[in-house]
């Protein structure tokens, strides 16, 4: 009993951290532009597939492949903002939703044509065998996942609170017109937001691939659940996303373990609906005042 519980917890936290990374990606873009980027999940998928390509075909070492995949996906984020979102800057909310959905379909389709429909694999970052904790199995890759995401979170909070660009981005989020008046190039900040969120998504994709494999069709579901985490944590709220991601992952894992494994996928979405209906500012956001701040 205790062993099972521990195993479910480990599994839940592992996926939960990935959902959190996706949620952080949503938040960065939402904060600067108020756009919900429906293509966020595809960045995760692209990250994993790029890394599989770099390792499998170009035979790069895994760590190099990690950075290469993150940079490559960052470029995709750049292209998306520069060539699509920027054109639609005057479009209404409805058009923006549809545009990001269209981009996600395009990314998914290109991935399918480029990589085929088979799942792709990546070697684990470290080669040692699984670690046993009181009968439960902990794969070393899980530690890598925790480590990398912790690094990402720390680096991001450093970036937003200490660096010039980070502060400028926060200013855009607060009030774009005022930001422009004090000389902050808002368009560039939006561009930066897209690159950043694409890269973070890609990082999540690369670290999860050794455990779960990656194929072109994964993006939509990861995106949806990540979005659930973002809403649950309060849209725009950074630490809220992290917490909410873990909550969702755990809920899913316990549901699979103790209730019904078939309805596992519905758990995150039910949380999403409940949060939207009863607490649209999220579990950890306090009212609209902080809706747009970290």
């Amino acid at each position: 009993m205790g062993t099972d519980f521990l195993q479910y917890t480990i599994t839940g936290l592992t996926v939960g951290v990935i959902y959190a990374m996706v949620a952080i990606g949503y938040n960065i873009i939402y904060n600067v532009t108020e756009i919900i980027n429906f293509a966020q999940g595809e960045f995760v998928m692209l990250g994993g597939l790029f890394a599989a390509f770099f390792v499998g075909t170009l035979h790069l070492p895994v760590f190099l492949a990690f950075f290469a995949a993150v940079i490559a996906t960052g470029c995709v984020g750049f292209a998306m903002e520069r060539f699509v979102i920027r054109r639609a800057r005057n479009a209404g909310v409805l058009s923006l939703i549809i545009i990001t959905i269209a981009v996600s379909i395009l990314l998914k389709g290109s991935a399918m044509l480029g990589y085929g429909k088979d799942p792709h694999c990546l070697p684990a970052f470290s080669t040692r065998g699984p670690i046993m904790i009181a009968g439960a199995v902990l794969q070393p890759q899980v530690l890598w996942i925790f480590g990398v995401s912790a690094l990402v979170v720390i680096a991001l909070s450093f970036f937003f609170h200490r660096s010039f660009y980070g502060k400028a981005m926060l200013a855009c989020a607060d009030n774009p017109i005022a930001a422009r008046m004090v000389g902050i190039p808002v368009r560039q900040m939006v561009l930066l937001a897209f690159i950043l969120s694409a890269s973070i998504g890609a990082a999540a994709g690369v670290i999860i691939t050794p455990i779960s494999l990656m194929d072109y069709d994964r993006g939509a579901m990861l995106g949806l659940k990540g979005f659930g985490a973002a809403v649950l944590g309060g849209l725009g709220n950074f630490y809220g996303a992290l917490l909410a991601g873990c909550v969702l992952g755990l809920a899913e894992s316990y549901c699979a373990g103790y209730l019904s494994s078939g309805y596992k996928d519905a758990v995150a979405l039910i949380f999403l609906l409940l949060a939207l209906f009863f607490k649209p500012e999220g579990l950890f956001g306090s009212e609209a005042a902080t809706l747009k701040k970290f």
């Binding site: 099972d4 996926v15 199995v137 999860i208 455990i211 779960s212 494994s261 078939g262 996928d265």
Partner: peptide, 14 residues
């Protein structure tokens, strides 16, 4: 049971 998109089956196997 589990979904075709699941990323980890440890829970079921446990």
């Amino acid at each position: 049971r589990y979904g075709p998109q699941d990323t980890d089956l440890s829970a079921q196997l446990t």
